[in-house]
């Protein structure tokens, strides 16, 4: 296997890791409006991801950095081409991070309500926009011979990509509801299960449509296999959730994300950003990758440090393994 193929897989793994982890973070943020009925419940939800959301978000930074290092042209074309959606995502991630840290710093009702609203919207928009972005990557966009995106913003908002956006939005919310059922205790836990069922069914409809559309447009044998895994995993998650097996349900909803995002990358390969103007202008793993030396250096770094990251991030989840209920939420800051 050529190193740039390996790096295609590693980039896919980083994005999959990001969507798996920040997927439920986004979901929790959205559920602060859908599931939580009062401030205490909103705080329960926020605190289920409190210690981990920042580490989860680093998967995105690593995916971005690794793309820059391993596929400079992919990074350059993608980030300059999708300027406006990425700007919106940036604004959301900035406000969202600050919201988590600042909401509890003052006890004023308006202050807290505003930050809570911010958490909701800044979780919802990226969850949608990432789907739009990946829909466009897989579908192909107008890339010229200099590898520059020459389409407009409106070209990115095509039906296929918008369906992709809706799919990730609902899928992440479902994943978040399953996570909430796993991490909370008391009444909210039961309601999380019920909402998970509803969200899971909507996800099933949307994901099926999106994945079949993808499979017909740009699929291959491997992506078909991944599609089947994704669908089965989603059914598994629904079933486990119904049976009250929350750990299994979360495992399966996670597997759904892994398989669905994996499916997108499988149908993409060996392109990384196909051009709709001329297939010869498409960015591929070979024409947009770094030199062999750089890839070798980065491979060594990845092989040494990725397991380490998994180890200490995994440990964090173990440390904060206890379920949280309204009874665990301390009175608002004594200020």
């Amino acid at each position: 296997m050529h190193l740039h193929d390996l790096w295609f897989i590693l980039i896919a793994v980083l994005w999959i890791g990001y969507f798996f982890l920040e997927g439920f973070d986004f979901g929790i943020g959205i559920l602060t409006r859908l599931l939580a009925r009062n401030t205490a419940e909103r705080r329960v939800l926020i605190n289920t991801i409190g210690p981990v959301w920042d580490g989860n978000e680093v998967w995105l930074l690593t995916a971005g950095g690794a793309t820059f290092a391993a596929f400079p042209d992919w990074y350059a074309t993608l980030f300059s081409g999708f300027f406006v959606p990425l700007l919106v995502i940036l604004v959301c991630l900035i406000v969202r991070g600050v919201s988590f840290e600042y909401r509890h710093q003052r006890s004023g009702e308006r202050w807290q309500r505003n930050w809570e609203l911010a958490i909701f919207w800044t979780s919802l928009l990226p969850a949608f926009l990432w789907g739009v972005a990946f829909g466009n990557i897989v579908r192909g966009v107008e890339i010229d011979q200099d590898k520059n995106y020459v389409g407009t913003l409106w070209d990115l908002l095509n039906p296929y990509a918008l369906l992709g956006g809706l799919t990730t939005l609902v899928l992440f919310t479902f994943h978040g509801a399953v996570f909430a059922a796993l991490k909370t205790t008391g009444e909210i836990r039961l309601r999380a299960r019920v909402q998970a069922t509803v969200l899971g069914l909507i996800t099933a409809a949307l994901a099926l449509a999106f994945l079949i559309w993808t499979q017909i447009d740009s699929g291959n044998h491997w992506s078909l296999a991944a599609t089947i895994v994704a669908v089965l995993a989603l059914l598994g998650a629904l079933g486990a959730n119904q049976a009250g097996r929350e750990g299994w349900a979360f495992g399966f909803s996670g597997l759904t994300i892994v398989a669905a995002v994996g499916m997108l990358f499988l149908s993409l390969f060996p392109d990384v950003m196909p051009s709709t103007l001329n297939p010869d202008w498409s960015l591929t793993v070979s024409n947009s990758s770094s030199s062999g030396y750089t890839l070798k250096v980065m491979t060594v770094v990845a092989v040494v440090f990725t397991p380490l990251v998994l180890l200490y991030q995994g440990w964090t989840y173990w440390v904060f393994r206890r379920r949280i209920g309204v009874q665990h939420i301390p009175a608002t800051a004594h200020h």
């Binding site: 680093v58 930074l61 690593t62 971005g64 950095g65 690794a66 820059f68 290092a69 391993a70 596929f71 400079p72 042209d73 990074y75 350059a76 074309t77 993608l78 980030f79 300059s80 300027f83 990425l86 700007l87 940036l90 590898k147 520059n148 770094s290 030199s291 750089t294 250096v297 980065m298 770094v301 990845a302 440090f305 990725t306 990251v309």
Partner: peptide
Amino acid sequence: EFQFGMNWSDYSRFVGDVFGAPLAMEAL
């Protein structure tokens, strides 16, 4: 990390092979 690609894509293409490595290491 994002604005190198967003605003400086020709820079990113030119230096990515060198400049991307320390950036990726920083993240990882």
